[in-house]
Amino acid sequence: MNVAIETDNLSKTYGMGIKAVDGVSFSVAAGEIFGFLGPNGAGKSTTIMMLTTLIRPTSGTAKVMGIDVVRDPQGVRKTIGYVSQDIAVDENLTGRENLRLQAEFYHVPRSQIGERIREVLKMVDLEDRADDLVSSYSGGMRKRLDIAEGLLHRPKVLFLDEPTLGLDIQTRRRIWDYVRRLRDEHGLTIFVTTHYMEEADSLCDRIAIIDHGKIVAEGSPEGLKKALGGDVISLKVRNSAGEICGDGVGRVIEKMPFVQRAIAESDGIFTVIVRDGEKAVPRLLSSLSESGITVDSITLKRASLDDVFLHYTGRELREDGGKSEFHRMRTALRRARK
């Protein structure tokens, strides 16, 4: 197996001691599509920026195609493509001029520039607007142009930070088809962050989930779903007095022997992870009614990547319930105001 990306204890601490990335180690095989998932502020973009040589790691190492990002950044830059989370296209140029600039920055041979530009324009469906100023493009069109730029020079490793955020389904599908084709035909390695779980599920060979700067789970989407235990029950409950139930009920549910984990979504709604859904539903219902809790609704489904994500990053049922979350938000706000 050829390794395309390899990190060892990679960390980044910003000023004021914010540990954005905290000892992350993973490796991505050449030709793999690797998904990097995590909630807002988890450290996804920071990791990508270290791998694309835009910021220097505080500690740890990272290699792309065997090249160290700190020792030989220029070597890394030659082999990668990067589409950032910000839509970084030049408004004062036309779409075609933007692509031309990108081709020149990446030293695409002159004889191929025209053909390549036509090809990516077709892929993102911007042929008709290619000679208009980008300032006249819609947000989605700009994003498409930005992605086209990242693919233009056919990098060996492509970093996509939220590439399909805000695009319509049609365009998303077309972009993924193209990306997959590049991978299948040319062994392109892709490192992608996304918030669309179905996308990650169907596209990625492997994913890692990052939260608070640390990788909390890693594996194939199938493997992760299996590890979760399989089935997910959603239920809405209230107690005999008709009041909405809080964390107390969550603890009751979690104590049941066949339950692996219970997550409180919002007051009265719980996600319960169980091993064998069909058998668990009746047992859960009878146990709850014994404790004087009424079930308003209940559904059973197979675990999806959404559930995996929630399982690893979701709120824990601890004594302090939602307090810690609230506390964090308040300190963050106070800090921001200063």
Binding site: K78, T79, F105, Q112, P155, E185, H186
Partner: peptide, 25 residues
């Protein structure tokens, strides 16, 4: 398809001419 070569295989200019090229763009 010969179109689909990576940038490295495509052969890039080297040395000071690269620098002038980049500066110009």
């Amino acid at each position: 398809m010969c179109l689909l070569t990576t940038c490295e295989e495509g052969g890039s200019p080297v040395g000071s001419s690269t620098f002038l090229h980049d500066t110009w763009w």
